[in-house]
Amino acid sequence: MTRLVASLGMYDHPTQQPANDRIWSAIVRILRIRGIEGVPDVLDRGRHVHDLWRDPNLVFGQACGYPLIADDSLALQVIALPIYNMPGFTSSDATHASVLVARANDGRRSLVDYRDTRAAINDPQSNTGMNLFRATLAPIAETNVFFASVVQTGSHRASVAATAAGDVDIAAIDAVTYATLVRHEPDLTAPLRIVARSPASPTLPFVTSAETSIETIVALQHALQQVMTDPRLTDDRAMLGLAGIVTANADTLAPIRALERTAIRFGYPDLR
């Protein structure tokens, strides 16, 4: 029997890990009742999410939407989009955005004032860290170069820390991640202010390997619907900001591609 793997590594702040574990345990119970074999007892936190996305045994995970539309070698199926509701960030549908943050005392007043400054991105293929950042700047960029420099930090938290420390001047942070940091690491975000918000795009989809059968996908969608209404998981959903899900497929991510194409039409194809 193939041993499957699962991950919830996109929103897995240390304070959120017990909630993710309980959510996953509930999903496991439902999958096993429905006869799905090989489901792992625990989430895989030993590998980077990028590696897990490429594992043909990935039964359940969460992925950034931009790689799914930009990287043809990424063989994943979209099964659902989460709806988030957190302090400082609420959504009535399965969309979210980025917040563009800078130091509160840097003296700049508007987004255009950050021309020729230093920017941070977590990853060149991040929707919230790069694609939505680019989409926000494209209408005001005027040329194909906006910043003096752009550095890659490796994570949204690292981009927040670099901005707060003065190593860079501005960064685009996933709104769900930023709400989590404000809540659980207020000292880290205290020096910052939100300069602008990006256009909305679909939330980070729940995914499974291209190898996963339709029967397992249906079972996963059923399990997700169940855990979103289970009263025993109310506190865990609140910790994660989960308010619900909508079933979805790859076509649901089309707005992400549209934002990329709009930036290109503005003459700002790359964030720089």
Rank of each mutant, 00 (worst) to 15 (best):
I194V: 15
D187R: 15
A148N: 13
H222K: 07
G107W: 02
H48I: 05
A164P: 03
G107T: 01
D71V: 05
M239E: 09
N85G: 11
Q125N: 15
P199Y: 07
P205H: 01
P56M: 05
L58S: 06
V160I: 12
T95A: 05
N144T: 10
L242E: 07
D21G: 13
G267N: 01
A238S: 12
S7N: 14
M1E: 12
P199C: 03
V78P: 02
L204P: 11
N122G: 14
A254H: 13
D270E: 15
D93R: 04
R115E: 06
V182T: 14
A190N: 12
A250L: 13
L4M: 10
N127Q: 15
L259P: 03
F60K: 00
F133V: 00
S126A: 08
P269S: 04
G166Q: 00
D235M: 09
P205T: 04
V112R: 13
Y84E: 04
R183M: 03
Y66R: 06
T90C: 09
D71W: 08
M10W: 13
G129K: 01
H222A: 11
A223Q: 01
T90G: 06
T247N: 11
D113R: 02
R54G: 10
F89C: 01
L181C: 01
H184I: 05
L220F: 08
Y66A: 12
D167R: 15
P56T: 02
S155F: 00
G241E: 05
S159W: 00
E185V: 04
T189V: 11
D44M: 00
N122C: 14
R261N: 12
L8W: 05
V246E: 14
V227H: 08
N85H: 13
R108F: 14
D169Q: 06
R34E: 11
I140G: 05
L68N: 02
T177N: 10
L8D: 09
V28R: 15
I36E: 13
G107L: 04
Q225G: 15
R257V: 06
L100C: 03
A70C: 08
L68P: 00
R54Q: 03
Y114G: 03
M86C: 08
V99H: 08
D113P: 01
L242C: 07
L137Y: 12
T180H: 04
V218G: 10
H156W: 01
D21C: 07
N85Q: 14
R115Q: 09
S209W: 05
V227F: 07
V150Q: 10
T90R: 13
L220S: 08
V49K: 13
P67G: 07
L137E: 06
P82T: 07
R32M: 09
V28C: 12
L74M: 10
V5E: 11
P82W: 02
R29T: 13
G241N: 08
N57L: 11
R134P: 03
D169Y: 01
L68F: 10
D174M: 00
A148I: 01
R32Y: 05
G88N: 07
V59Q: 02
P186Y: 02
A63H: 04
R272F: 11
A63D: 03
Y11H: 15
Y114F: 14
E185A: 08
P199D: 10
N122A: 15
